[in-house]
């Protein structure tokens, strides 16, 4: 599964990071960085949680 961030929507709330710190982080400027686009099956639950909490629906999984 692939996790993607829609840059034009992401405003940097970082709520996704609280859910999935192994998959993404905010850099020093508060920009979201995806550490791995390809999500291992055992992390898919964590990735779904990140998608779920983003307040502006900027993360998607497919």
């Amino acid at each position: 599964m692939r996790l993607s961030v829609h840059r034009d929507r992401c405003e940097g709330y970082g709520l996704c990071v609280d859910e999935a710190s192994s998959l993404l982080h905010l850099d020093d400027d508060g920009e979201l960085v995806l550490d791995a686009e390809e999500v291992e099956p055992e992390l898919s639950g964590v990735a779904e949680a990140a998608v779920r909490v983003c307040p502006v629906a900027a993360l998607t999984m497919d």
Binding site: Y13, R52, P55, V56, A57
Partner: peptide
């Protein structure tokens, strides 16, 4: 409950929530 609806969600999610 981080996913509550008090700030709305998606396109119009509260712009002032931070």
């Amino acid at each position: 409950p981080v996913d509550h609806l008090a700030f709305g969600y998606g396109t119009h999610a509260c712009a002032g929530q931070a």
